[in-house]
Design a protein around this nucleic acid. Structure first.
Length: 205
DNA sequence: CGGCCGATCCACT
DNA sequence: GTGGATCGGCCGA
């Protein structure tokens, strides 16, 4: 079932980031559905987190969407060429977000292959935050899109990842964040663990 | 304004 | 392991 606003509007953003592992992220544009199992995420804890774009209560046109109530997409341009997809969490006024760093593609593979220009069907299609957006057709112009609508959404399909299979560690590329760089706000399940789980790599909504 | 740089990826060595 | 691509956001002048 599709996650609703109450899932996103909770306070504990690292807990939400961890819970998103094993959920399914889908997009539907022009009637074409693509999706995958979320396998890696990172929590960004708002104004107190030096790694967050909202650190120091920086309200700008770009970060404004993070200040809205949870359940929206925050998608921004990185390195001039990559759109990075985040889930806005917490209540209005608290700019928390979760970066989706990797998915295991399970739906619309042929579309994903044409978007990425790759002809194979392995994890390599979407094992990085920029690749996730390319695979799913996400673009920074879509920032602010509701995650409870019919274009971008996340589903709980009952896939249970054994807690011991979810690893935590420091976030990637945030060395500038001082002591916040050491926080264990990155969560991931390794694809070889995911592969062993029965009956889950099938199906679209 | 001007300049620096990034929550990255890929090709190449 | 290294460097180039490529441009919006942010800050300081």
């Amino acid at each position: 079932m599709k996650l609703d606003k109450s899932f996103y509007r909770r306070e504990n953003v690292p807990a939400i980031a961890r819970e998103l592992i094993g959920k399914l992220l889908y997009t539907c544009f022009n009637g074409v559905v693509t999706g995958g199992i979320i396998t890696e995420s990172e929590a960004y804890e708002g104004i107190t987190d030096r790694a967050s774009h909202a650190y120091g209560d920086r309200r700008t046109a770009r970060t404004e969407v993070m200040y809205k109530a949870g359940g929206l997409a925050y998608i921004y341009l990185c390195y001039g060429m990559h759109s990075l997809f985040n889930v806005v969490t917490n209540k209005e006024g608290i700019p928390h977000a979760v970066l989706i760093r990797a998915i295991w593609p399970v739906g619309g593979i042929s579309t994903i292959q044409s978007r990425t220009g790759k002809q194979h069907s392995s994890y390599d299609l979407s094992n990085g935050p920029g690749k996730v957006s390319r695979a799913l057709g996400l673009h920074y112009s879509q920032t602010g899109t509701s995650l409870t609508g019919d274009e971008i959404w996340i589903e709980d399909r009952g896939l249970l990842i054994p807690p011991d299979d979810i690893e935590a560690g420091p976030r990637i590329g945030v060395d500038y964040a001082g002591e916040d760089a050491a926080l264990s706000y990155r969560f991931l399940v390794r694809p070889e663990r995911l592969k062993l789980l029965p009956g889950m790599v099938e199906g679209l909504p």
